[in-house]
Write a protein that binds this DNA or RNA. Structure first.
Lengths: 206, 206
DNA sequence: GTCTATACAGTGATAGAC
DNA sequence: GTCTATCACTGTATAGAC
C-alpha cells in the first residue's frame, strides 16, 4: 500500500527508523498496527520498500531532468547536480533521507537486493564526470571527485532548505563551479557560452 | 567514568544510539545497568558526554597535526585534511561517527551546549581555505568548498578503511588535489616545491 | 482488508541493600 | 560505587473475529 510507504518515509525521515513505531506509521494513515502487518511481513520489509521507492523515483527524476537538459556537457552537469539537489530538497526528500541515513539499518540481504538500483544512481554522476574530464574541464581524479560531490549534495539539507527550483539551480551553479575550482560567474559564463555556440548534441526542448 | 564513555562510543557507533541499551554499555565495562545511572543521570547525558569527548579529542588531534606541519599553505592544507581523515578513520573514529550520525538525536539544549565546540572545528578548515584563496590556489566560493569537503571526508569510511597514517596521507593528497581541480601529481609537485623553496612562515619542527 | 486483544521481550530509570 | 530487584512502559508481531 502506497500511502503506508509515503507515511513511513515521512515519519522515519523525521524521527529515525528506531524511534518510529509501527503504531505511529499505521495511525498516520488511519490504520491500526495489526493492519500494517497484512501489507508488510515485518517492519524491516517496510523500510526496504521505502528505500526502494526512494531510489526508483529518484532515478526517474534524474533521468527526466537529463532528458530535458540542453546538449553541452557543462549544461548537462549542471542539470544533473540541480536534479540531485531537487531530489534531496524537494518532494522526494524524505525518501532520500531515509535512503542515506537508514541504509545500514537494512538487513544485509535487503542491501544486496537494492545495491543494483543504487549503482545506477552513482553511474549517472560517473558518466558526466567522465565527460567533463574528456572535455578538459575536470583535471582531478574522477572517483575522488564523485566521493566529494555526492556526500556534499546529500548533506545540503543540514545547512540550507531550498524548496523552489530557482534557488536549487543557483546552488547547483555554485557547486558545479566549486567542483571545477572556478568562481561562480566564470562557470556560468562557460555554461551559457556552451548553450548558444556549442555543438548541442541534442537540444531536446520540445 | 571514562571507560563507560569509551565503551558507549564504540557500541553506539556500531549499532546506533537507539539500538544500544544501557545494559549493553554497562556490561561492556563489567557493570550492571543500575550502576551506569550513578555516573550519568540519563542515557541522553551519556550520549552528550560521548560527543563532547569526540569533539574535544578531535580538535586536539587536528591542532597537534597543524603544529607539526611545515609552513606553506598547501602543506598545511594537506596536513589538515590528513588529520581529519585520521580522526575519521583512526582511533577516534567511533567518537566521530557518533558525533556526525547521532547529533540530531541530542536534546536541543545539549546541541546548544556543544555548538561552540563544533564551530571551532569548522573554523580550522575555514581558515585554511581562506589562505588557499588568498594565495590564488582556490578560486571557488569558500563556503561551498567547505560544504563539499567536510561531508566528503566524513563519509570516507563508507567506501574505504584506512588505519595507517601513510595511506591516510595518500588519500589526503587525492582529496586536496580534487578540491583544487588538479591531477594528484600536479598537486604533489606544487606542495613539495612549496616546502623546499617557499617562504615557510613557521617551520615548527622542534 | 481491517479490527481488537494479547503474547512476549526488551526498554530507561528508581529504590534500597551492601 | 556497585549490586539486585523491580516498576511502568513501549516495542514487534500474531490470532482470530468480522
Amino acid at each position: 500500500m502506497d500511502e503506508l510507504i509515503d507515511a513511513a518515509s515521512r515519519l522515519i525521515s523525521l524521527q529515525g527508523y528506531d524511534r518510529t513505531s509501527v503504531r505511529d506509521i499505521a495511525q498516520a494513515v488511519n490504520l491500526t498496527s495489526g493492519s500494517m502487518f497484512y501489507h508488510f511481513k515485518t517492519k524491516d520489509d517496510l523500510l526496504e520498500a521505502v528505500i526502494r521507492k526512494g531510489i526508483i523515483d529518484g532515478l526517474a527524476f534524474m533521468n527526466q531532468a537529463l532528458d530535458l537538459a540542453p546538449g553541452g556537457t557543462l549544461n548537462r552537469f549542471h542539470a544533473l547536480v540541480a536534479a540531485h539537489i531537487g531530489v534531496v530538497q524537494g518532494e522526494l526528500r524524505h525518501f532520500h533521507r531515509v535512503w542515506t541515513r537508514e541504509w545500514d539499518r537494512l538487513q544485509p540481504e535487503a542491501r544486496l537486493r537494492l545495491r543494483p538500483l543504487s549503482e545506477q544512481y552513482r553511474e549517472l554522476m560517473n558518466a558526466l564526470l567522465h565527460s567533463l574530464a574528456a572535455e578538459g574541464h575536470l583535471h582531478s581524479d574522477i572517483e575522488t571527485a564523485r566521493h566529494l560531490l555526492l556526500p556534499g549534495l546529500n548533506w545540503t539539507p543540514t545547512w540550507t532548505s531550498l524548496k523552489d527550483k530557482a534557488s536549487q539551480a543557483t546552488l547547483a551553479e555554485k557547486i558545479c563551479a566549486t567542483v571545477l575550482n572556478l568562481p561562480v560567474d566564470a562557470f556560468s559564463d562557460l555554461m551559457h557560452a556552451e548553450t548558444t555556440t556549442g555543438p548541442g548534441h541534442r537540444r531536446t526542448i520540445d
